[in-house]
């Protein structure tokens, strides 16, 4: 489903990602973990082309885009992006639109679908994420957990092949984390392909088919969740997990 080869990303002189290779199979859930500044968020944003890589290749579904000195065309990048949906740490719902307006906005204006059908579709999706009763509220009237669940529905409305989550629960109050993670687990059970940047190790252990540990712009270690999280091979992975244990 996803194949990334020799991906490199620099911000001016700072190299954030260095020779990244990994792949995700259809229906697989992959969690990216690692200390802050390790490049995991940048990697995720590269998959959605919110950051343009300097070098390398990204394939999602049947679309392959090569990045080098000559940037790929807008059309190519849009095509690649259309296969992934993004959920942000800060939700980024449109504050001037109600929940239902938020989630039908893109299919309405980008895919030019019929509004009535979309409302129907949208209400079903809101039901699934437990947001149906809030469909006519503005984001400002919702809790963080509710906003994030609406944001997940908004991304799903575009029917992406892959869902990308950038620390979906990091901006939430502790008691709201569960309701969001439950929605993500529900999607996993349905076979949705997902890449999740997270600091919730227990969640990663439960949900991930595979875990990638990143540090300093490199993928240091990857493997099945229980292997990487329980018996890490690399020293840096051990240190990182040890540090997390200490703080808990």
């Amino acid at each position: 489903m996803i194949k990334v080869e020799a991906l490199k990303k620099q911000f001016d002189d700072l190299t954030v990602l260095e020779s990244i290779d990994f792949s995700v199979k259809k229906g697989e859930v992959v969690c990216l973990i690692g200390p802050s500044g390790s490049g995991k968020t940048t990697l995720l944003r590269c998959l959605n082309l919110l950051e343009i890589p300097n070098n390398g290749t990204i394939s999602i579904s049947n679309k392959t885009v090569v990045f080098d000195k000559k940037a790929p065309t807008k059309k190519e990048m849009l095509a690649l992006r259309s296969f992934s949906g993004m959920v942000f740490q800060g939700f980024h719902l449109f504050p001037h639109k109600t929940v239902i307006e938020n989630i039908i906005e893109a299919p309405l204006t980008v895919k030019k679908k019929k509004k009535l059908e979309l409302i129907n579709e949208g209400e079903q999706l809101l039901e699934k994420v437990g947001m149906f009763e809030h469909r006519n509220k503005y984001p400002d009237a919702l809790s963080g957990g509710q906003q994030q669940r609406a944001a997940i529905a908004r991304a799903l409305m575009m029917e992406p092949e892959v869902m990308l989550f950038d620390e979906p629960t990091s901006a939430l109050d502790p008691q709201l984390v569960r309701e969001v993670l439950k929605v993500i687990e529900k999607l996993a059970k349905e076979g949705q392909t997902m890449v999740i940047v997270t600091h919730e190790m227990n969640f990663a252990r439960r949900i991930a088919d595979r875990v990638l540990f990143m540090d300093n712009g490199y993928i240091i270690e990857e493997g099945p969740a229980n292997e990487v999280l329980e018996q890490p091979k690399e020293k840096r992975t051990k240190q990182f997990l040890q540090l997390l244990d200490d703080t808990e």
């Binding site: 949906g85 980024h92 719902l93 449109f94 893109a106 204006t109 980008v110 908004r154």
Partner: peptide, 20 residues
């Protein structure tokens, strides 16, 4: 984030400007 959310939903520049 409003620009990024719009972009990730495949909305174009003019569309994002006008509607969001």
């Amino acid at each position: 984030g409003q620009w990024e959310a719009s972009a990730s939903l495949q909305m174009g520049y003019i569309q994002t400007l006008r509607r969001i």
